[in-house]
Design a protein around this nucleic acid. Structure first.
Lengths: 104, 104
DNA sequence: CTCATACATTACTTGTTGCTAATATAATAA
DNA sequence: TTATTATATTAGCAACAAGTAATGTATGAG
């Protein structure tokens, strides 16, 4: 029966919200394997450019992703290993062979 | 590089959304220890009766919680062990000694 | 039967999230 | 320089989530 401050719950909740979205989760799954650029993520997920960009930005601001510019492309990777772990935990539960989402 | 159907991502997302809320996560943490009735959960979380009831109902409909009536009280427990696991995974990340939230 | 307690449900309002469309910027190519 | 490709940003709107307040229902006490 431990006590944890509300603040911790709030932090955890924030983390969960960040990945509790189909597109964002799909992206995270894809990035578990290797860094990818926006184009590749667009193709893999079927998302619209603007939309995808917004979600990537959101995750970057939260420290979940990091990005690196190579020429005119921007590559994204998972920056916070905690989230890789979280996704793995999810994968175990929902789908042992989770990752590499194709649109539809 | 496995492929998973959109459906699985959708399911996982639904699961995440279900616990990505301060009050719901707090309740889940409390219920990791033992079943509790609504009154007890109200005291432990500081939530309003109606509000708590709605969240409990939501989680019950999603199969996360189950409830049992004893006299005029209703006891809730975690029905789906997957969610207990998820919360544990979260706990590892955010707070090694997570659980037993007191209001404020 | 009446009252009190424990919980659920409904309706309403508000705040947040997510999408699209349009526009902006940066890099490379010609 | 101009055009093209890759990505980001902004604005506006539509959908959804969450909280409060009020009301409903069931159980047990007296």
């Amino acid at each position: 029966m431990q006590e944890i401050p509300k603040e911790k719950v709030s932090e955890a909740t924030q983390g969960l919200r960040a990945i509790a979205h189909e597109l964002r989760l799909s992206v995270l799954c894809l990035l578990l394997n290797e860094p990818m650029c926006v184009q590749e993520l667009m193709e893999a997920t079927g998302a619209a450019q603007s939309n995808l960009s917004q979600h990537l930005s959101k995750m970057r601001l939260l420290g979940i992703l990091a990005n690196e510019k190579r020429g005119q492309q921007v590559f994204y990777r998972i920056a916070n290993p905690d989230f890789a772990e979280l996704v793995h935990a999810l994968r175990k539960i929902y789908c042992p062979e989770m990752c590499g989402i194709k649109n539809k």
